[in-house]
Design a protein around this nucleic acid. Structure first.
Lengths: 332, 332
DNA sequence: TTGAAAGCGGTACCAG
DNA sequence: CTGGTACCGCTTTCAA
């Protein structure tokens, strides 16, 4: 552990006071350009790097954010993270990217740890905690933005995707192309977006005069394995299933695999629609019809809302993105 | 910005000194169980949460690590990150997961930022900086582990995959199944693993008495788009290409797509081998023959080495994993 | 077993 | 324009 250069060392080397060094380094306050340049040069030469810990203690700002995602292996979240991190770095913030691996307890633990680390704000994607546990934890943070989860405006701003609109588009498309009845692999029960889409699914079926067959509505883990298992179980039934609406693209990939193993052709025997339009969706065969959302824009919007809250003017409380149905081979 | 409870507040409420509270909270030093429990209860009730910033300033330990990956959207890295983060959290560390988006300058910037944040150590995966820029930056850090990149032991420990062995297995398999000549989509020129594999590719061809056709050796971006472009360019040539060895699975997915568009059947007209065995590899059609490495184990090993270095006994300097060829439909 | 005081490396406030 | 001093919240050292 090599002894690091401190601001005092720089001050001594430059024969000035520490405050003068501080002013030079931060380029603020009244200071003559001459001394500033001289000090900056000396600091550079000494290999000085400022200590964000010490600075954070006095400024009460860590210039650090927390980002929680339920599963970083789902390409949906790296894309959002990218949108956030790009803007965060540009604004001088570092991001703790925390994978809660779909585990509510880990989500709670991470929220507490981030509080100890005194992050300036957090962005929580697709919360898995129930509100009674979640909200008290969130309230302790200085600024919070939720992605895909509602919250009282005094607790958090939110960025969400219009789940109802997306589900409606997908169901209508399947209905219009004569692929009924429509099964729905609905994702995890505790996910808010799953609940919203389930409501929309039921409602749209009703609007179109279709009966709801409860056996065609199944929850599943929001990954390929979950989709595979759920689809297998579904296909084991006696009723043929000509259309499969999936919680996300990974679920759709798993379902596709299950269909293939069951000897069903996609889209001839079964049409499949995913959600998110991850990069993979157009690279597999058949390419996946899916609901596209602009993940990078979601990330950027979330950061924007968070920054506004950190800086005090938490005016805009909600941004909504509307998904767009992208037709590809799996459900033309 | 709500006023947070400090250790002083707790001390006042419990009518003891701050040191006693500190001892109670950390459960160390001599303290009577009675007062300790009383203090802990009061702290809890006041909603006290300790301040890692203040604590880090005095202990000179941030309990924070930095993890740099070139592209978090490549499923290879989330798997490694998962292996690291699981063990890090279990040991009380938080991880800054930083996506350098294949950009050397961003890598350098992040390395500097992490230094300001006084992370206790960093794990850098697949460095993109050249050693002359990289090493000075690394030397400034207290503990460093490199994944897929060599380094002098006094600068960093390293975890690597035996690229030569993997490449050799793959080339031999393609040769044994009569699929020659063999093209190689080698990934980014500045990646150490790309260089190693290129050497092994040449060497193995020579050992097997095959001529090297330079037009069959192409660099590419290490993602699906890169594989797609490189494969397209390759297939535009006049020579048929019966075998395609790819830098990683994403490159292979892109190459697969290019082959399909060119009207080539996989594996009948072209055999394709990927690398990493990401989850996707067995979910696409045809399933991908690939070189499997245990990503979670790589992450765990990297964390283990880092912890050893942080705690001072940086004895083991290198861990090597050997990839295993997994035969699937794309190159049976 | 507990407490008083010093100080980690900065920044902020005021004086010169 | 520059310097002195207090202090952020906590742990460490030494006394009591």
């Amino acid at each position: 552990m090599k002894p690091l250069v401190t601001i005092t060392d720089v001050a001594r080397a430059a024969a000035v006071s520490v405050q003068t060094v501080s002013r030079a380094l931060n380029n603020k306050g009244e200071i003559s350009p001459t001394t500033r340049d001289r000090i900056v040069a000396i600091a550079e030469q000494l290999g000085y790097r400022r200590n964000a810990i010490a600075r954070g203690l006095v400024t009460n700002r860590s210039m650090t954010l927390g980002l929680l995602v339920p599963d970083i292996a789902n390409p949906f979240f790296p894309d959002i993270a990218r949108g956030i991190e790009d803007r965060a770095l540009a604004n001088g913030y570092n991001v703790f990217l925390c994978n809660t691996v779909e585990d509510p307890n880990r989500e709670a633990a991470v929220l507490a740890l981030l509080e100890e680390k005194r992050v300036d704000g957090i962005i929580l994607c697709s919360a898995r905690l129930t509100d009674d546990r979640l909200l008290p934890l969130l309230r302790r943070h200085r600024a919070v933005v939720l992605v895909n989860h509602p919250a009282p405006p005094e607790v958090a701003a939110s960025v969400r995707v219009d789940d109802a609109a997306g589900t409606q588009q997908a169901v209508r498309h399947l209905h219009a192309t004569q692929r009924t009845p429509i099964a729905f692999l609905a994702g995890p029960a505790h996910a808010h977006s799953s609940q919203q889409r389930t409501v929309a699914y039921r409602q749209t079926l009703a609007e179109l005069g279709m009966a709801l067959d409860p056996t065609l509505l199944r929850q599943c883990a929001p990954d390929a394995e979950g989709g595979y298992q759920a689809a297998r179980a579904l296909l084991a039934g006696t009723t043929p299933v000509p259309a499969l609406l999936c919680y996300n693209d990974l679920v759709a990939v798993g379902a596709l695999q299950a269909c293939r193993e069951a000897g069903l052709r996609v889209p001839d025997d079964v049409a499949i629609i995913g959600c998110d339009d991850i990069a993979l969706a157009r690279l597999i065969t058949p390419a996946l019809t899916t609901l596209r959302v602009d993940k990078s824009a979601i990330g950027a919007a979330a950061f924007g809302l968070l920054l506004a809250r950190i800086e005090g003017d938490g005016t805009d409380a909600e941004v909504v993105f509307t998904p767009e149905l992208v037709l590809r081979a799996s459900a033309p």
